Simulated assay, not measured.
Amino acid sequence: MKITYIPILLLLSALGCQASTSPAKTELLYSNHIFSVPPKASLVAAIGGENHLLLFRYGAEKGKKYLAFSNITPDESMNFGCQAEVFFAVLFTATTNESCNSDELTAFKGVFVDGHDVGGWAGDKLRIYFSIGKDQSFLFAFDDAGNAIKIESDFLSKAELNEVVGAAL
């Protein structure tokens, strides 16, 4: 009888060890899309206002090792001259559009394109334009409902940022 309990105890202890491991990613529902963010953030802050800023910090130092989400749909401070998604497509890909504000494109190229890896990822739910830099990276995501989301980080690589948005695409 004792021999029967030993395999069961070994199985239960192995399952217990598996259950205590932390997940590789945490699912985040933001602006009706599911993103996968790194777990174990040292700080999570939600700042209200029009942009609904959501900030994850992954260290003790303020302003370092962060991942931020913001809704830029209501941002009317920019004069793109064309739809925001079209503007970012022109900025980060080889597409052209004569109606986009050329002065704004020039200004944005200096910040987001020069010295950055730029391009786009597309899926059924989102189209994302990325600007991956040495010190800071940005993703601009657009959906069919007209929502625009900016995601930025100062520590995640291009591959890690692609994992963040992979399930949302």
Rank of each mutant, 00 (worst) to 15 (best):
N32V: 15
E76R: 14
A94H: 12
F108C: 05
N51Y: 10
A45M: 11
H33Q: 07
I47K: 15
K109M: 06
D103L: 09
F112N: 06
S70F: 08
E85S: 15
K40L: 10
N51L: 09
F80G: 00
L105G: 08
K62I: 08
G49D: 01
E85K: 13
A94Y: 08
L43C: 10
K62T: 13
A89D: 11
T21V: 10
F56H: 00
L105P: 03
T21D: 13
E85T: 00
K64Q: 01
I47Q: 15
S42Y: 15
F108S: 07
L67I: 06
G59D: 01
G49H: 12
C82R: 05
L55Y: 07
K65F: 03
N97E: 03
N32R: 15
A60L: 04
A46Y: 12
N32D: 09
A84H: 11
L67G: 05
L53S: 11
L54E: 05
L28D: 03
N32L: 09
F69Y: 09
T93D: 07
T21E: 13
T96M: 12
G81W: 05
E76Y: 13
N79A: 12
A41R: 00
E61H: 04
L91F: 07
L43I: 01
G63K: 00
E76Q: 14
A107F: 03
T106P: 10
L67P: 05
L53I: 10
F108V: 02
T26V: 11
L91W: 03
A60D: 13
V44I: 05
G81S: 06
C100N: 07
V113R: 06
A107N: 07
H52M: 15
V90H: 13
E104Y: 10
V37G: 01
T106V: 10
P23T: 13
P23M: 12
D75V: 06
V111C: 09
E50G: 10
S70G: 09
E104A: 08
H52A: 15
E76T: 08
S42L: 15
L28G: 02
N71G: 02
S22Q: 12
F80L: 05
A94E: 14
G81H: 03
F108P: 07
L53H: 12
P39L: 04
T21K: 14
S22L: 10
P23A: 14
F88C: 04
E61I: 00
F69W: 06
L91D: 01
F87Y: 07
T96I: 12
A45F: 07
F108M: 02
Q83W: 12
A68R: 15
S77P: 04
H52C: 14
